[in-house]
Amino acid sequence: MTAISERPVVSARRLPAVLRAYVALTKPRIIELLLVTTLPAMMLAAGGWPSWGLLGATMAGGTLAAGAANVLNCWYDRDIDRLMHRTERRPLVTGEVTPPAALLFGLVLSVVSVALLYLATTPLAAFLAAGAIAYYAVVYTMVLKRHTRHSTLFGGVPGAAPVLIGWAAVTGSLAWPAVVFFGVVFCWQLPHFWALAMRFRTDYARADVPMLPVVATALSVGRQTVAWTWLTVAVSLLLWPVGASIGIGPLYTAAAAALGVWFVVEAHRLLGRIRRGDETRPMQLFHISISYMALLSVAIIVDVLV
């Protein structure tokens, strides 16, 4: 009788750990970064603050969609995750979640996210979310990541998709300001992720993943990082003339220029350290890139409201 009565208590104690494991599979920190670009895209589309109901539904649907893609990525990559120190504690590697359970979880999140966006926002937003999930889980994770150095380039499409989803959720269509903002996020991902890959180059090499820092020289990676950082800033400035009619003005442009200088200078500093043979410290650029995108999004929000 004692053993039987204790079982619910043991299960109750394990429940928080199980929930944390499933949440960890969704990669919450990556989701936060993706959602940073959704709100300014929605505000640009709405010309101000969208309704709370639409905002909540879009953010919830976007969170579930991004989580679904990340879970499916973890499910497929569980064999190489165990080889890399950065990922060796993920729930599928430690056994906290079984592969069949993770696959089911990812598929359920996919269906729920697309259904929510379809019912509560627009069919186009739902279609874009479904496409982003499929692209990240299949095209990037299963096809490109293990076979080409250009995986980060092509993988940037789903990473920038929240911009298009947010715009489509408001208008049911797409327009040039959304495309340009998509371009900003797409270009930004290259220096952002290459900096991370430089830091964990040994991990990727051990797992035989041909990330650019694994298959190219540090000097080549540094030069390409600088080039894409400049391109990111150039596209960000293009948002002013393209979005002038919907609220983008001098305030955003000044912020984009100032933030762009900061971003470009740090990229050149990384290249300089590489050329001198100093410690590269790529995570400095990685962290600055996050701040850059967050502050650029805030600048859009403020300019639209003002």
Rank of each mutant, 00 (worst) to 15 (best):
S5W: 15
E6Y: 13
R7H: 15
R7D: 11
V9T: 10
V10E: 11
R14N: 12
L15R: 06
L19V: 08
V23K: 14
V23N: 11
L25S: 02
K27D: 14
R29G: 14
L35E: 01
L39R: 05
A41N: 00
M43I: 05
A45D: 02
W49M: 14
S51I: 01
W52N: 10
L54V: 03
L55K: 00
G56T: 10
T58V: 07
A60L: 12
A60G: 14
G62Q: 12
A66S: 05
A68N: 04
A68W: 03
Y76W: 12
D79M: 15
D81T: 11
R82Q: 14
H85A: 15
T87G: 04
E88S: 11
E88Q: 08
R89Q: 10
V93G: 05
V93T: 04
E96G: 13
V97D: 00
T98H: 10
P99D: 14
A101W: 10
A102K: 01
L104D: 14
L109C: 03
S110V: 06
A115H: 07
L117S: 02
A120G: 08
A134D: 15
A134R: 08
Y135F: 14
T141F: 02
T141Y: 03
V143Q: 09
L144W: 05
H150C: 05
S151W: 06
P158C: 06
A161E: 10
L164D: 00
W167E: 02
A169E: 05
A169V: 13
L174E: 13
W176E: 07
W176V: 08
A178N: 03
A178R: 00
V180W: 04
V185Y: 00
W188L: 00
L190W: 13
R199M: 08
D208W: 08
P210E: 11
M211F: 15
V214P: 00
V215L: 15
G222S: 06
G222V: 05
V226H: 13
W230F: 15
W230C: 15
A234P: 12
S236R: 02
L239S: 06
W240E: 06
W240R: 09
V242I: 10
V242C: 08
G247T: 06
G247S: 12
P250C: 06
Y252K: 02
A255C: 07
A258D: 07
L259V: 09
G260C: 12
G260K: 00
V261S: 09
F263Q: 05
V264Y: 09
A267W: 00
L270A: 02
L271T: 05
G272M: 11
S289V: 15
S289E: 14
L296W: 04
S297H: 05
V304T: 01
L305K: 06
